[in-house]
Design a protein around this nucleic acid. Structure first.
Length: 119
DNA sequence: CGCCTGACCACGT
DNA sequence: CACGTGGCCAGGC
């Protein structure tokens, strides 16, 4: 084990992504690309999606991860899709037409406290 | 190796 | 806001 730590192993990458997902506050959402970026993996949105699709941890707040436009990525009508809808609504979020309203208004907690980055 | 698929994204119309 | 287009990365075969 311990291959040259130069490039992070798949396990480390997965762990970082999951950590970022767990860090999304209740009642808030983030895009796949946003999550990847926060995990230090710009451009790996699809990796985040793949990881969540294989995830088995029910405690993981995977439902807070949406497409960049605020839409639910899962196929409409599927069991997982309905569960995501239910979980989001249970957190007080308004979901309409498979989309979370106001998801793009606040991308980060900082934006909520300090307002949109002036720079 | 090449080819196809996927819980994606940015951009233009 | 809906759609279409091209791009990107990882896996499965």
């Amino acid at each position: 084990m311990h291959a040259h730590g130069h490039a992070p192993d798949a396990d480390d990458i997965a762990a970082r992504i999951l950590a970022v997902v767990r860090a999304i506050p209740r009642g808030q959402v983030a895009g796949y690309g946003e999550v990847a970026r926060r995990a230090g993996l710009p451009g790996r949105a699809r990796l985040v999606a793949r990881l969540l699709s294989h995830n088995g941890d029910r405690a993981l707040p995977w439902h807070r991860v949406l497409r960049s436009d605020g839409r639910i990525a899962l196929p409409e009508g599927s069991t997982e899709y309905r569960e995501q809808c239910a979980r989001l609504r249970s957190e007080g979020l308004r979901v309409e037409g498979g989309r979370v309203r106001g998801a793009r208004a606040v991308a980060t907690v900082d934006a909520q406290v300090w307002g949109p980055a002036p720079d």
